[in-house]
Design a protein around this nucleic acid. Structure first.
Lengths: 141, 141
DNA sequence: ATAATATTATTTGATATTAAAAATATTTTA
DNA sequence: TAAAATATTTTTAATATCAAATAATATTAT
């Protein structure tokens, strides 16, 4: 594979990633949530109710850290803990009404950004991008 | 533009972004640097010597935060401050030898990831991805 | 059934990181 | 030169993180 392609692509990917990052953090800054709280909200919104351990795994942090994050989300009424009969050690975490609304709201920002991107591309290119991302996501991430 | 395309693309973009994020943070965790230090190193490596203000802008944080980050990079001998005659308020920040090596090292990781992505795609798709990213980067980010 | 082991979540103590405000230093401009 | 603008540092308070210890509960082996 040509070095030129690798280098250029790496450079554009970095630019793209940095663009997404600063866009995301400006959205979060304008919200009621900290970065880690927002991340937790996304995970809960996307994957639904889950216990602390798998939440910690999805977030890539320890369960201790997750406990603190969930405490804060609970205090702000974005999430709740529920215990289950089958295993009294376990807490299932899920979004409250308010949490769901915040997740939807956040999602709208994502959709808006996606629309912006699409409008910079032809319809054919947009479809190609979708195909390409699906491949990369399923094979690498 | 079709809702289906927007939704799917948004979803894949989020997945892609999360994949990149956790990949990046695992690389950083295995290094001598914190996330913000690594970010600063990237900016300095990519854009070269600059003053605190423009560095803060590139990083998307305040100059106060940047001062602290540069302090740490300086202490670890990754970066240095240089003053200039023309304006004694100004410090120009640049990478040391060690900083340059770390930047190159970090860059190698990026190239490796890029190669992985390319190997999941056909040559045509890789070129298409480059074209698409260039468009998005120049028009949106 | 009991004892040993494993799992899940929380708490604690120590650092690291961050943003924002206040203080200081310097340059530019009127 | 005095005032305004700019750049930086310091300080403060909030947040984030981890590792280790603890508590509660489940599971497994004897």
């Amino acid at each position: 594979m040509s070095d030129r392609l690798i280098n250029e692509l790496s450079h554009e990917l970095l630019h793209f990633f940095n663009g997404l990052s600063s866009w995301e953090s400006s959205v979060v800054r304008n919200s009621d949530l900290s970065v880690s709280e927002a991340h937790a909200l996304e995970v809960l919104g996307q994957f639904g109710r889950m216990n602390m351990k798998s939440m910690a795994q999805k977030l890539g942090v320890t369960t201790g850290t997750t406990t603190v994050t969930v405490d804060r989300l609970e205090k702000k009424d974005y999430a709740r803990r529920e215990s289950i009969r089958e295993d009294r050690r376990v807490n299932l975490i899920s979004l409250t009404e308010k949490g769901c609304r915040a997740f939807d709201e956040h999602n709208k920002f994502h959709l808006t950004l996606t629309e912006q991107m699409i409008s910079a591309l032809s319809e054919e290119e947009s479809n190609r991008l979708l195909t390409i991302l699906k491949k990369i996501n399923s094979e690498i991430f």
